[in-house]
Design a protein around this nucleic acid. Structure first.
Length: 120
RNA sequence: UCAGAUGGUCAGGCAAUCGCUGUGGGGCAACCCAUGGAGGAAAGUCCGGGCUUCGUAUGAGACACAAUACCGGAUAACGUCCGGGCGGGGUGACCCGAUGGACAGUGUCGCAGAAAACAAACCGCCCAGUUCGCUGGGUAAGGGUGAAACGGCGAGGUAAGAGCUCACCGCGCAGGCUGAGAGGCCUUGUGGCAGGACAAACCCUAUUGGAAGCAAGACCAAACAAGACGGCCGAUGCUUUUUGCAUUGUAAAAGGACAGUCUCAGGUCCGCCGGCGCUAGGUAGGUUGCUUGAGCGUAUCAGUAAUGAUAUUGCCAGACGAAUGAUUGCCCUAUGACAGAACCCGGCUUACAGGCCAUCUGACUUU
């Protein structure tokens, strides 16, 4: 199974503004339906996570494998854009724990719009 | 055997499963097959180039600014490298040194100390005077301070002293010999000694340097926005003339703008009016620049070496939200260090677990 990747900066910005999200200590998951008929994925590992490029590369490669080998993504979110953002806690977890975190995220995506309006 | 010095080198290995990406081939296509796929520092961006653009880019000179600084060589070039000199450190192999000039000028030298620089007298020493408290003069040999006190040491000399005089050492200048040179050497001569350190303070001397960078630059080109364009006037060239065509906004005069400043030389640019959408420019985006190179490997030859010459085989990462991997198992010296190409080379600097190889030094033991 191959992965369709999100590469344009514009697409990442659009996803950042969508309210459909899920959180764990290691990741943030953003989901948004698209009209392309396929599920596309993107990954963000910022320099806040680590200043070393080697560390960021390794984490992003692990994230990509987790998403690629996930059995539920295509069935639960067909024709969606999905972005997985790493948080600093992800560095302290091994591959098996990160896989569980991602499975949890897929079942807990929810609308945040109402909460945000109250807070803001 | 132990301790150490220098140079080089490796940067966990193997297997299975599932993936990414460049190139080539096949297929209508999905895709399949073959093959290549991070480093010694890819890092810091500190120097030197190539390449690109900026106005033609080494036009000339002066000033300013910046960098470099013993000698010879290597190199495309360098602030780099190699060899040598000098000074310092180490028992030694070796290591370290921004290593020109302080009789061009200006400046600085904390604390301590009497005094820190065309000298100077705190204690002491000597002479003279004295109201016996000291006062005046001489003196850099002695004490004390300091990183540093205006040559060292001995003798003569003297009231006590002093290069005041002399021997030796040191130093300056000259000469000779030697070396390509920095420099080195001396049964040589000469000067009684010039007068501290700092140039990583300004400075002086010599040499070198235009600026910005692949987000450079070239091409295609949505959205959007408005400017191409045409005419007039003028110039140049072609045409036998009229006419027309091409290049255009130069030309006559004066002036202005243009990459540190100024001068000289040279160059580029700077006219007016109109209406129209098929066009010009250009953002997102795409293509290109983009990897064959002062390249790497191997061999031979030249050279003490840096390096050069010749031959030969292979094409040895080219991404752009950024590939080069993920997981599992086994083995080993076992939590496998530091760490991820981004236009490309040559260096420097910094980070780095643990090995391996070569040469050399010191100590000990044995033969």
């Amino acid at each position: 199974m191959s992965l369709a990747r999100i590469k344009r900066h514009f697409d990442f910005v659009e996803l950042r503004e969508t309210p459909t999200k899920a959180f764990t200590k290691s990741f943030v998951l953003q989901v948004r339906p698209n009209d392309k008929g396929i599920t596309r994925t993107g990954f963000t590992v910022s320099k806040k996570i680590s200043k070393l490029a080697v560390v960021r590369n390794h984490l992003r490669r692990q994230m990509r494998e987790i998403v690629r080998l996930s059995p539920d993504l295509q069935t639960k979110y067909p024709s969606h854009d999905v972005v997985l953002i790493a948080r600093s806690e992800a560095l302290n977890r091994d591959y098996a724990q990160l896989t569980k975190d991602f499975a949890y995220l897929l079942d807990h995506v929810h609308e945040e719009a109402n909460d945000k309006q109250d807070n803001d």
